[in-house]
């Protein structure tokens, strides 16, 4: 009796979970035409869109040196795998809640976390980077935690401690209402090493 009652519900839950995961895992990898060598990956599904565009090391250097970072500190960032990241709640009536501490990457069989603001700020503190530069860094980075109401969106840098040319899968997840979602953006590639960065 119990089994008869339990099975349909269990099955329904399994099916719903599978439907959510499979539809979202069907990522739309879309490398856009390179502009100055930068490539873009897009993913969209279930009311959310995500876009990652490579930021070239020279662009990183230009941005942060103009904002009070010294050459040595700027190199720390320039030698990291950096993407300009845009996330948007396209149509979900529920707020889309993200927490980047729960996102992860898979590269060469290894699973790793993103390098997030807290780790960076600890590093800047150790290196005695100025408050002005640290403030610019904080606002240029994609926020670790964010809530997107319908129509809200944000843009900022996401950083990954990976060597140049590394290809990785980005596993993202979010919550909307009482539902959890996850998706995989496959085949994202860090900017290849240029001859200028070989030292």
């Amino acid at each position: 009796m119990n089994a008869k009652l339990t099975w349909p519900w269990t099955w329904l839950i399994i099916c719903m979970t599978a439907m959510t995961s499979s539809s979202l895992a069907a990522d739309e990898l879309d490398p856009v035409n390179p502009a100055e060598g930068a490539r873009t990956w897009r993913w969209s599904g279930d009311s959310v869109s995500l876009r990652l565009t490579q930021i070239l090391p020279d662009q990183v250097r230009g941005f942060y040196q103009a904002r009070g970072f010294g050459a040595a500190e700027t190199e720390f960032i320039a030698r990291t795998c950096v993407f300009q990241t845009v996330m948007r709640n396209e149509t979900s009536a529920h707020a889309v809640e993200i927490d980047l501490t729960k996102w992860w990457i898979e590269a060469d069989g290894d699973k790793r976390q993103l390098k997030l603001e807290r780790q960076w700020q600890q590093q800047w503190e150790r290196l005695d980077v100025s408050q002005t530069a640290r403030l610019a860094f904080r606002w240029a980075l994609f926020p670790t935690v964010q809530s997107f109401a319908k129509g809200d969106w944000n843009m900022g840098m996401t950083t990954f401690v990976l060597p140049p040319s590394t290809v990785f899968d980005l596993h993202v997840n979010w919550r909307a209402g009482d539902q959890k979602y996850d998706a995989v953006v496959r085949g994202v590639e860090c900017v290849p090493k240029s001859s200028k960065d070989s030292s």
Binding site: E36, R51, G62, F63, A66, Q84, D152
Partner: peptide, 21 residues
Amino acid sequence: VACVFLLCAGAWGEESPQTLV
């Protein structure tokens, strides 16, 4: 720097709901 960020700003061109929360 401006060019970097403008290059990355293509997402803006997509139609998006104009909402106040």
